[in-house]
Design a protein around this nucleic acid. Structure first.
Lengths: 133, 133
DNA sequence: CTTTAAATTAGGAATAATTCCTAATTTCAA
DNA sequence: TTGAAATTAGGAATTATTCCTAATTTAAAG
């Protein structure tokens, strides 16, 4: 693993240019503009490699396919479980304390990579109110 | 939506009896023991309804299919992004403060349903050390 | 420069996970 | 009762992702 490849480079470039939480398929179509020969399997494979290398972050969605994010700057995500909207935000979680609690409660010294909020956004809440039940 | 159905009842019972974060397919096989006629599509459909009703919680996985949890008692989850292990733990996140930050930063008054930690567990960290790179 | 082994690729096939479709059945309120 | 709405089983269809293979590219060593 880890020979140079302009395809992988192009994918990372796309991620840096488009901070829009794209799906794998959206990344594929964006990369096509730079690398018209690239295949979908190459995109999927390299996305996984970039995630494994920590260059990009996989966002685990409740709705629709997973999405990816280039962390130009440390931030957290709040995701609407009903419509899938993703919000970037900053919050100073006390990771040391959380790590300590994890170690005490589950006996496992995890490295915390990210903390994600799942909930229901304002729009989905009000749409629901209009629904007859 | 929401006529009585013994199939949905059986699924919820299974979730209450097996607090093991099962996948939809695992739920299907567990429910089969109570309802030998039940079909997989019924299981999928009712799982989604139970999630929507807030009776069970969907866990968004990095690895493998999504999993589900009956929250017999409020708790959070820490998930290993590499092997998919799920740990239940308790932590008193300051949801009010987080909500306030969300409103200020993203202008959206979300209802927070859950907070999930993603990271790399101890086992996966040490496995990695042994890997030649 | 060559050579060579390892890594990567394109393209399509295969798999996995989930949703959709339909006719039959069940639920429940009038 | 009865009729409309909801739900079901079963299988087809769709979606998302991974796997397979022969050809190409990379990089390091001579």
């Amino acid at each position: 693993m880890n020979n140079y490849s302009k395809q992988r480079e192009a994918i990372l470039d796309v991620m840096k240019e488009h901070l829009i939480h794209p799906t794998a398929e959206e990344i594929y179509y964006l990369v096509l503009e730079k690398e018209p020969q690239i295949s979908k399997s190459t995109v999927y494979r390299n996305i996984n490699i970039l995630v494994e290398l920590g260059e990009i972050k996989k966002l685990n969605m409740t709705v629709g396919p997973d999405r990816y994010d280039y962390l130009y700057k440390e931030h957290s995500h709040a995701i609407c479980e009903r419509c899938g909207k993703i919000f970037d935000f900053y919050y100073d979680f006390n990771k040391d304390e959380i790590s300590k609690e994890l170690l005490e409660q589950i006996g496992n010294n995890m490295d915390i990579n990210s903390i994600t909020i799942y909930g229901i956004c304002e729009d989905c809440k009000s749409n629901n109110k209009n629904k007859e039940e």
